[in-house]
Each structure stands twice: as structure tokens, then as C-alpha cells.
Design a protein around this nucleic acid. Structure first.
Lengths: 383, 383
DNA sequence: CTGAAAGCGCTTACAG
DNA sequence: CTGAAAGCGCTTACAG
């Protein structure tokens, strides 16, 4: 790899000029910029990000921590986030916590010490405070994080649990005329660290709330061990053995619903004739299970883009310092001017975090993602 | 974040000693090590990887380029790779090429200039040469890459296409007594850059080879547009419209098979009574589609672990230089001693890649992953 | 066994 | 508008 020094020599300018020119700073004369760019191309120059990071305190690399990539929702979300960041000239390191709260906090702590400008965290069992503390001075965007006291400087994005559940329940009650709706996804408190515990409670609560507001009978929701396919299968079998007191089963996520569909099919129960089934998330499988699954399709791309905006606001980048590696980076440079100015004035030197850091003084934002209720065979029957 | 200098001051030793102590080098007296470690803990020290990378030329960060994380096989593989690297004290940046050959090469080139010690690439349409060239001096492990001329210093890992297809075809023919087997997954050459083109050709060829060896009639395989669910649905409909000349449909991957199952169900064709269906990969959906899918379950974890071994061999790390950030790193230190020695002697200074770099002189390796044929309802019927 | 010094490649005040 | 110099935090010969 060639260095900036070589580019400068090739272009017959100083290293400082070469540096400024490649980053397109407007104090450099246009023809000097062209000269330097040509030289960079000739010697095949690529900026060394380690050096830049050491100087800058910035790397353009962010870290996402998701419980698992084997779960379709998280895989798709990580995909969206990765692409959204890439479009802004940044990169994403994806790591998995395997639903282990300790591992999760450890990953966050390590990211903090590592080459990373900020964190995107889908917490499994840790609350906002614990995440905030582990993250140290790194900005964090939290997804579906449990609410807690001191959350200044913790931005949040949530899946539309309340409005989504409301839409599904209304669909089952009003469009499909179901009256005995079972909520599949509750868990007793004895398995607090199991997959999806947090979400589980929240989504179930919202579903029950809408049912009550519609005057529906709220029976005990079937308890499940986790939100996976196996748990869904087991639940369906158990319900059938109990003479299936429901005419609709509203599942807290798609995988659980897949399992329920499987389990019901094995018992010879017809969907949706005997019982309607719904999911939540909108993962690809919904279109090819039999019957196809009515679900709340969460706008993962929108979530990802919002997350990137929040992060850029907090990191305070217009992109200027992070691009300029010879390739065009129009996108990244189009950030807001204020943030960009704030950037350079904020700290004169890497590591000097003595002055108040706006990362922690900006008010925190909160956003709820959009969704679409997609009606398919599992509630509407075959076309 | 505190620096090594502060640790040294706290421990009342020099910076060099602190550095050596934290990496557990055996030239440091044991009690000095303890003293430094205690100091590091007190000031909450974490090594700055940018600085280390600048000095070392190593970051402990690797990059994986997969076509897509929305595809279950790649998501699972990325997951496995990420975990396998983590267990060795490294980290993985996952990026997606979206089946775009240009983007793919661009990502590889960028990774080369960035904070990255090596690349894991699942190529979409680029051949080994193009990947090798884009990667520059970075080590690359290629997955299911097309064979090409100059592949020195390109290690490869392949899914067990030949033995896997052989096992499926034999299962259909010998265990299930099927004689009219259709291979779903061929494509005409007119869509060369479409999803999975490369694999498609190879797997189909192997399937047909086994069929011929068994004396089966090899008819024209149904051409599909890609390897997705939609293509599978369309194929099934087309075949049924053509009076379904097959008693088995051997699909080149699971998603295609899911689509075929869907399409057949919509047409009222029974699986496996009228026609047996098989997939390839072993993604989670196989267990919950109806009927459950017989498939070749590729050992993704094994692939990932082998990939990490190959990479470590090529990068020449025993882990010593990359760990020692205060946390215990037993795993990482247990690499092979030879590589570890080669490491320090290889280059005295970062960036001085003048001497012959073993990265490019080590003979390339090739490995074929393991698999298990898992028989389910789609060929065996319900239990 | 320990310490002082050089230098990885870059960016940014600071002088011209 | 351009250049010389300092320094980000670390590791590694090299002297003691």
C-alpha cells in the first residue's frame, strides 16, 4: 500500500496539502486538488484508516450487536443497517450476543475500546442503564430497549408493538369476526433471560389491552418457553389437547406462528377455518409457509435509516473527516452543516475529551418504526 | 479512555514494560506483570486498536463479504464465522454485495485499504482471479469460488456439492424408488449474473452425473430465474401445467424447494405421494414448512471453523500480538507455535512488505465442508 | 529484566 | 493557498 507521503512526492506538493486535497477541502486550489487526485490514482493510494482513526478519534466503523443472525428478523435488520451505513460511507461490524446478557455487555465494553464510532444494540436482557454504562463514552442507539431511569444520551428505536398489535387484534376481531383470541407468546417470570423476554411482555400487554377495549374475553394467554418454532409447535399441540378453546391465535412473532401452523396441521386443525393465526415481524418465510401467514410487517429498512440518522446526529458528522479516500463520496458529505462545524470545533485533538462532549449532552430521541398489516391465507383463507 | 502511559504511571514502570506486561510476554517478571495488570484494571485501561494496528499492521478485524443476509444460508454462515473468529479473539465485519459483481469487487478493494487483516468472500459472479486482484496483499478465503488459473495464495472452502447431490439423488432413487427425477435449479446462460449462477451450474452438473451413473433418464432440468422462493413457486406451477412428468423434484437449494412445495400445494399435488421434493443447505425453515423438507444439511459451523484456521495460517498469527488488552485470552494464545514465531521474524516494522511475504508464498489449501442428509416428510411422508 | 526513543500514517493548528 | 512540525497511542529494536 502506498502512503500519503508517496502521493505528495508524486504530486510534488507537501503531505499536508495532499491530505487536504484528497479530502476536498476548499482551501486547496482546484487544480492542486486535481493534480493530487491524479497522483493518488497513479500510485493506487488508499487512506490508512488506522492512522486516520488514531489522529481523528473516528473510524467510520460502527458496531451492531444483535442476539442472533439465525433469527430472520435480526438478520434482515442487520442487513438493512449495514446497507444504510454503507450508503453514508460508513461500515458496520455485526456481532451476536447469543441471548446472553453477560456476553452482550462484554461485547459492548470491548467495542468501546476498539475501532468503533458508535453502537447499535438490540439488547436481550440488559436494560438501558447497563448498556449505557458498558458503552462508556460511545454513542448508542437502542432497539426495543427496556425503559429505565437515566437514559440521557441513549436514543431509542422501537418496533411498533402497540400499534401493530392493535391492528392485528382489530383485524381478527373486526374483519374476521373472531371472538376467542389466544395470545401466544406470554411467559412466566421464571425464565427472565430467555429469548425475547422483554418484547414478549410488551407485545402481549398491548394485545390484551386492545382486546379489552373491544370488549373481548381475555383468557389466560398460552405460556411459551421462547419465541422459536419449536415452542410454537409445542404450544399448538398443547392447545389442541386442551380442546382448542380459541378461534384465533395471535402469535407474538412469525417464528412462533410458523410453529403453531405446523403443530395445528399435524393435528388436522384447519387454518383459518377452525382457527386463524397471525404473526409479527414480516420475515420472508411468511410468504411460503402453508398457509401463508398474516403478519405485521415491520419496516426494517426505515428503522435502519432512522438509526443511522440518529447516530450521525450524535456523532456529529457531516462525513467530511471520514471520507476523501480518493473515491467520490457525495452522500457522506451531504450531512448537515451545523454538525460538521460542531465537529471541528469540538475537540482540537483526538482523545482530549475534557470539554463537554455533545455526544452526551444532546437530548435523546425516540422513534417508533412503521409497519404494514399484510393479510394472507392464515386469516383470510385461500384466494 | 485511559492510555498505556497512564497505566505505566500508575504501575510505576515504563511504557514499554507496561506494553510487554499486558501482552504477557515472558521477558517480564511475573510480579511486574501482576502489578501492571492491577494498574490497568484500576484505570480501566483498554488497548487502542487503531494505534496498535498502525504500529503492527494488524487489527484483528476481518471482513466477510456475502451476497445477502436476507438469505438464510448466508446469514447462518456469517453467524458461524463471526462466532468462530470471536472465539479466537478476532472480530468480523460483515458486508453484503447484493449479488452485484461490481459492488463486490469494490467492497474487497475498500476492505484492503481499511482496517482489515483478511477477507472471507462468498463471490457472486467474480472469479478467483478478480477477487485476488481486488484484494491486493490481503489474504483471502474463498467460498465456492469458481476455479481459475492463478490461484496461488487463495484458499478455498466449498460446500459439498458433489457428495451432497450424490447422496440426495441416491436417496430419491434407491430409498424412495423414484425414477423420473427433475433437477430444479438450472438456468440458461442468458442470466449469468443472477443469484447463485455459479453454484447452480455446479450442483446441477453433479446431480445429473449421479443420475446417469444410476442409469436414470436425464431429462431437461426445469430452468429457473434464480434460487429464490418465487422462482420455485413459478417452476412448480409451470411443471404442473405441463402435466408434471416427474415423480421427484430435486431442488438446488432449500428456498427453491420451499417455493416448489408452495406451488405444488396450491395445485393440489401431494408431497411426497405424487412427487417427492428435496432441498440443499439445511436452513431452519426446513423443519417448519409443510411438509418438512428433506435436505442436505451443510456443516456451516465446520466451514466457519476451517475458514478461521486457514486464515490464521495465512496471516501467521498465534494470537500473541493481537490480544493482551487486559482480558484473558487463552484461546487466542493457543495457536500454533510455528506461526507465532514466523510472525515476529517476518517483518520488523509495519508496512515494510519488501521481503517475501509468506501470505503469498504459502501453498493454497482447499477444503470441502461436511454435510448430513436429513430425511423428512417431503420424501418420507408423515410419521 | 527494564527504560528511552523511534516511528507506524495521518490530520491539524500554526507559520509563512 | 501551501509547507514544516507536532502528536494521536502503541510496539519494538536497542541500550543499559
Amino acid at each position: 500500500m502506498s502512503t500519503l507521503k508517496q502521493v505528495a512526492a508524486e504530486a510534488e506538493v507537501s503531505v499536508s496539502t495532499a491530505s487536504a486535497a484528497l479530502r476536498g477541502m476548499d482551501i486547496v486550489r482546484p487544480d492542486t486538488i486535481r493534480k493530487v487526485e491524479a497522483a493518488a490514482r497513479r500510485v493506487g493510494y488508499r487512506v490508512n484508516l488506522s492512522a486516520r482513526a488514531l489522529r481523528n478519534g473516528r473510524t467510520g466503523i460502527f458496531t451492531a450487536i444483535v442476539p442472533d443472525l439465525g433469527t430472520a428478523f435480526y438478520a434482515r435488520f442487520a442487513n438493512s443497517l449495514s446497507n444504510a451505513l454503507l450508503a453514508h460511507g460508513h461500515r458496520l461490524v455485526i456481532q451476536t450476543s447469543q441471548y446472553d446478557a453477560e456476553l452482550e455487555l462484554d461485547l459492548i465494553r470491548r467495542a468501546n475500546a476498539s475501532v468503533c464510532d458508535g453502537l447499535f444494540v438490540c439488547p436481550t436482557a440488559s436494560n438501558g442503564d447497563a448498556v449505557r454504562q458498558a458503552a462508556g463514552d460511545q454513542p448508542v442507539i437502542l432497539f426495543d430497549g427496556e425503559d429505565s431511569g437515566d437514559t440521557a444520551s441513549l436514543d431509542r428505536i422501537e418496533t411498533p408493538n402497540q400499534s401493530g398489535m392493535d391492528a392485528v387484534i382489530r383485524h381478527l376481531a373486526e374483519d374476521c369476526g373472531r371472538t376467542r383470541i389466544g395470545i401466544v407468546g406470554a411467559s412466566d417470570r421464571s425464565t427472565p433471560a430467555a429469548k425475547g423476554t422483554r418484547l414478549r411482555l410488551s407485545r402481549c400487554d398491548y394485545a390484551l389491552r386492545t382486546m379489552r377495549s373491544l370488549g373481548l374475553n381475555v383468557e389466560h394467554a398460552p405460556v411459551v418457553s421462547d419465541w422459536g418454532v419449536e415452542a410454537g409447535i409445542a404450544t399448538a399441540r398443547r392447545l389442541v389437547a386442551d380442546e382448542l378453546a380459541y378461534d384465533a391465535l395471535c402469535c407474538m412473532n412469525d417464528e412462533l406462528a410458523f410453529g403453531v401452523l405446523r403443530g395445528l396441521a399435524e393435528c388436522g386443525i384447519r387454518v383459518p377455518e377452525d382457527v386463524a393465526v397471525t404473526g409479527f415481524d414480516g420475515i420472508p418465510g411468511c410468504t411460503y409457509v402453508t398457509p401463508t401467514l398474516t403478519t405485521v410487517a415491520v419496516d426494517a429498512d426505515g428503522m435502519a435509516q432512522a438509526a443511522v440518522s440518529m447516530m450521525e446526529r450524535r456523532v456529529g458528522i457531516g462525513g467530511a473527516g471520514l471520507t476523501g479516500d480518493g473515491t467520490v463520496a457525495a452522500d457522506a458529505a451531504s450531512g448537515n452543516g451545523t454538525a460538521s462545524r460542531g465537529n471541528s470545533s469540538r475537540r482540537s485533538r483526538a482523545g482530549s475529551r475534557t470539554e463537554a462532549d455533545p455526544r452526551n449532552t444532546i437530548a435523546s430521541q425516540r422513534l417508533i418504526a412503521g409497519f404494514r398489516l399484510i393479510v394472507r391465507e392464515s386469516t383470510a383463507g385461500r384466494a
